[in-house]
């Protein structure tokens, strides 16, 4: 079996990175973001990146790291509210943004990974999102056509992975990760725990190994919390 296991983020990205790539990034807020891979992309210095990601991180964390260094040319996202650097870059004309409704973004990625070039959705009909796009009426209701998305490299974070690339996600850290894994030429995955092939229950695998080309263990993780909200004891 071909070896998919690398020792760290830098080696896992070796030979893949160059200017102008489209990166497909898992995560929602700071949950399930490919932390170590984003740091390695920052350290590589590649520029003019297009990042497909639901959010843009926060200042100093997640994709915020690549915004701080000016490595991102364009974001395709649904919500970027938490990032001040983002606002500054955007207002200065140094960053493009394409807003997609979150479900449309998810489906564009899912479709791209599934070999579907376009689909129709009722989300956004009659809004700015539908401007300039083809529409069609099915059963008396109007739908707008959206294109599938397929990128150069998927950056994915999973909980457990085996050495063949089978993945298991943990709780709400699953989010965009399984679909991003399917929607790029090369999928690179960081996991909290890397196990031997055969140690994951086949019925519990969320992403089958076929989608994954490179994998490494990124532990230890210091998981950040954006909105720590508690109730009184």
């Amino acid at each position: 079996m071909a070896n998919k296991v690398y020792k760290d983020a830098k080696s896992a990205l070796d030979g893949l990175l160059k200017d102008g790539l489209m990166l497909m990034c898992g995560g929602f807020g700071l949950v399930g973001i490919p932390d170590k891979l984003i740091q390695a992309v920052r350290d590589s210095g590649v520029k003019n990146l297009t990042c497909v990601s639901n959010n843009a991180g926060i200042d100093g964390a997640g994709l915020g790291l690549l915004l701080d260094t000016g490595q991102v040319k364009k974001m395709i996202s649904s919500y970027v509210g938490e990032n001040k650097t983002f606002a500054q870059l955007y207002l200065a004309g140094k960053l493009e943004i394409e807003f997609n409704p979150q479900g449309t973004l998810a489906e564009r990625v899912r479709a791209g990974g599934a070999g579907i070039p376009a689909f129709y959705t009722k989300t956004g009909v009659g809004t700015q999102v539908a401007e300039g796009k083809e529409t069609k009426v099915f059963d008396g209701e109007e739908y707008v056509m959206e294109r599938g998305l397929f990128g150069d490299i998927a950056l994915v974070k999973a909980w457990k992975g085996d050495k063949s690339g089978n993945l298991v996600f943990r709780k709400a850290a699953r989010n965009f990760n399984p679909i991003m894994a399917t929607a790029a030429r090369v999928c690179v995955v960081e996991v909290e725990e890397l196990v031997e092939v055969g140690q994951l229950d086949p019925d519990h695998i969320h992403t089958p190994a076929v989608y994954v080309q490179r994998i490494f263990c990124g532990a230890p993780y210091d998981k950040k919390i954006e909105q720590r909200t508690v109730r009184k004891a």
Binding site: S78, V80, G81, Y90, L91, F99, P101, Q102, T123, G124
Partner: peptide
């Protein structure tokens, strides 16, 4: 400054 629609449109 527009923050995005998130999941509201869907």
């Amino acid at each position: 400054m527009v923050k995005g629609m998130g999941g509201a449109m869907d």
